[in-house]
Design a protein around this nucleic acid. Structure first.
Lengths: 112, 112
DNA sequence: TTGACATGCAACTAAAAGGTTGCATATTAT
DNA sequence: ATAATATGCAACCTTTTAGTTGCATGTCAA
């Protein structure tokens, strides 16, 4: 995954509406634009724009069937980001850093 | 983690400069604002703003030591998001969905 | 105490993001 | 063919975001 793609994925995930759409597609794949417009208080065009971004980020893949466009979740990019980003932080370090602020605070407090 | 916090984390990760800062803090913790300004062609105040957002998202924790402010990476929120978001997608499903577009494309092609 | 250093705060600007409305195109069913 | 349905495209508006500059505050060292 190239840097530009990574950026698209993060940007796509940055919006709560788009995350909701991903949640919805996870529960049920193959939904049309019309389906996805239900339960959202924004216009169809707004949803379209979100889906375009999600598709550009490869988080959603689509299939045209006649006049309909079916949407499916593709969780692979998210997984890739985990492997590339979060996977960087070794598990041992995580716990250590989790306690770091507290430790340093007390250390600092001692000095004062 | 509350929904509002989740949003902060995603928004914080949406910017490439902030991701770079996190990368830098991962390589070396305890850097000051001045340190973090090096190798970035933006003003000190721009970096400050990024760090404020990262701290609000709890991706960075800080300790004041005299007139300096030391910054440390806190990877836990990212990990939480993985557990809550990416962990949702079972591994089996991942591979299945990975091949879905191709399969559906061929299926659609047959019908045409 | 005074100068140098490290950071904080506020006002402002430019660009990007999220949303709207209106119209166009393509497909299905009668 | 024609009407209804499903989606696509484009212009426009408003809010948010990323960045700037200028000045204020706080801390260290001579």
């Amino acid at each position: 995954m190239v840097a530009a793609d990574e950026d698209k994925v993060f940007k796509a995930l940055a919006d709560a509406s788009r995350r909701q759409l991903l949640d919805r597609l996870r529960r049920q794949g193959g939904l049309t634009l019309g389906d996805l417009c239900q339960k959202h208080d924004m216009s169809r065009q707004a949803v379209t724009k979100h889906l375009v971004l999600l598709e550009a980020a490869n988080l959603v893949v689509t299939v045209k069937r006649g006049r309909e466009k079916l949407h499916y979740l593709n969780p692979l990019p998210i997984n890739e980001i985990y492997m590339r980003w979060i996977g960087k932080f070794e598990q041992k370090q995580v716990q250590a850093l989790f306690n770091l602020k507290q430790a340093l605070k007390e250390n600092d407090h001692d000095k004062t």
